[in-house]
Design a protein around this nucleic acid. Structure first.
Lengths: 152, 152
DNA sequence: TATTGTTATACTCTATAACTATA
DNA sequence: TATAGTTATAGAGTATAACAATA
């Protein structure tokens, strides 16, 4: 990459994937303390952004199959953390939204996770830490080719 | 983290895990051109470091179950990419090593993957790119708590 | 008794197919 | 005809159990 001598390193994926797994594994016990499983947390995060979404839109947004999250939604609704409102404009669809309790739980869980992440990031010098997070933000929003191929 | 105002961002895991998935997905077609599946490539990488390893040591090193890689090893051996030498010091164990062809294939596949990764990293300004890779190296080597809990 | 390599089995997760009701 | 939500089924991937050989 015309970058002069580059230090030797493992493949990017070989470093990032295990790191991601470890990060997820570290979230599990934190989420469990909040009574949340990973997908449930993902749903709460996915519902943070307005406007409200339908179930399939949410599924696509959080990278899940639409059938995958149904049980999760059932449970969250039963616990009063989300609402499923019939869409007056399309009687097939159900609009999802967080209840105040859902919002509180999401905030509380996310705060705990952030604290745990900060411990991890503390291993990096401050400027490197900022660059790392900035780079992550940039790379995570890149348009990746759809694994399933362009929609027919 | 005594860091002044920090910009808003998604959870680390929420950025890193999809990035890792995308990186892996990008590797698949490259590896297939080399006649390799993901685990096969992982095995070749895991055998890069001397001294030679036993099957269970390799499995642990690359984060696989020892039963998981047996079929992979069978195939790689049949194709002349690795050797399974009986350990003279322990007749239960089989020492693994790359053949010259295995080494060549690994190098060729890895070079192609690096080129693809460089395209990705080109989205980052040079100094940020260097900091990102350096941070990744640091974080990926941290001692994470064993998901299975400390060995009994 | 523990460990290496192996096979067969069970389990977990996810995607696919099929259905109803709407559009 | 196509889509939203749902259920039931099938598939992929992985781990667990059990075994023979050796330590």
């Amino acid at each position: 990459m015309a970058d002069g001598l580059e230090e030797e390193r493992d493949d990017l994926a070989a470093m990032i994937v295990p790191l991601g797994r470890a990060l997820m594994a570290a979230e599990v016990p934190i989420l469990r303390e909040h009574g949340l499983a990973m997908w449930a947390y993902g749903v709460l995060l996915g519902l943070s952004e307005e406007p409200v979404r339908t179930q399939s839109a949410l599924a696509k947004a959080i990278g899940a199959d639409k059938t995958r999250i149904i049980g999760v939604l059932d449970d969250l609704q039963e616990r009063g953390l989300i609402r499923r409102t019939p869409d007056p404009a399309d009687r097939r669809a159900r609009l999802l939204s967080l209840t105040p309790e859902g919002r509180r739980l999401r905030d509380s869980a996310q705060a705990a996770i952030r604290r745990s992440e900060d411990e991890l990031l503390a291993h990096l010098p401050p400027d490197e830490r900022r660059a790392f997070v900035r780079a992550l933000k940039t790379l995570s929003v890149l348009p990746w080719p759809d694994p399933a191929g362009p929609q027919t």
